[in-house]
Amino acid sequence: MHPVIRTVLQRLGLGLLTLFAVSVIIFSSLELLPGGFAEAILGQGATPETVAAFNKSLGLDRPPVTRYVEWLGGAVQGDFGKSFAGAGGWREENVRFVSDIIGPRFYNTFFLAALTALIAVPIAIALGLFAALYRNGWFDRIINSVTLTTIASPEFFVAYVLVLIAVGNKNGFAAVLPDGWGPMVKPFVSWIPDLPPLATVSKGTPFWEHVWKAILPAITLTLVIVAHMMRMTRASIISLLANPYIEMAKLKGLSPRQVIVRHALPNAWAPIATVIAFNLAYLVVGVVVVEVVFTYPGIGQLMVDSVGSRDMPVAQACALIFAATYILLNLVADIIAIVTNPRLLHPK
């Protein structure tokens, strides 16, 4: 077997093991949350008998280990069980499967993450390359300060500034800015097209409309993640510049740009890929604030809501998907590190 395939299988196996450990942690930590779904839904006035009956109807009276095994058994087959919401004594047609709830939300989240990645990753790598090329020059400094500013600002702030610009452009700034500020700001932002400040999408939203509505959240997230990836690109390239093969490339008459793109970048992919994977994982699991600002129906909001209402099956499924995302993206980064390293890809 080719060593690369063996390594990938090995990592995949380790990933599954990690996922299993994570599932135990998720299940037991949600188990430890004070108060149960029954208390949450029936209110404080509920008698212990009602609570017990309610729990029994949901199967919550059985021991945790039994429930865990049952849940995991279903999960590996893609069945995350039924949501508590709408369960318990109501009519059978109100019962909703967790996968039906999560499915569309996950699609939306994935859509936004992919759109952001398409914008942010090329920009970050290009900026990183230029920053390395013109290191310590004015371009490098400006790019560094701008990206650091955007990463240092809270994401809801970045989001609201963008909303402000979108709204202001359409309706005039008089409504949102103090008197006299509108005319000052307007010339700088009037070239920006009218972007929808609310990203309300539903199952039937056509693809391009979805893209259009998701642009502002995507830009917000881009501003949040670009700095990290760009700085890693810059740093890993600069750290390679002291290598003798870089000097050799210079002395072969290559221009600084050729030296960086042809001779430094191919050796820098591994650390860059790791940071990109990390940021893409964040795009899937960590964007609840941006979802709230733009009222975008993603999986982050769903998880927060389900934890609030003690809807365990949904919360567990979300957490498991998040963990799987991290593991999978890191696996991809590992694979990139292997295939971009000829020493590993083509052993002696």
Partner: peptide, 15 residues
């Protein structure tokens, strides 16, 4: 042109 001391360090491992 230039021939460096350590050939293993002066060849780019990626190409």
């Amino acid at each position: 042109s230039y021939v460096a001391q350590s050939a293993s360090a002066s060849f780019n491992p990626a190409h």
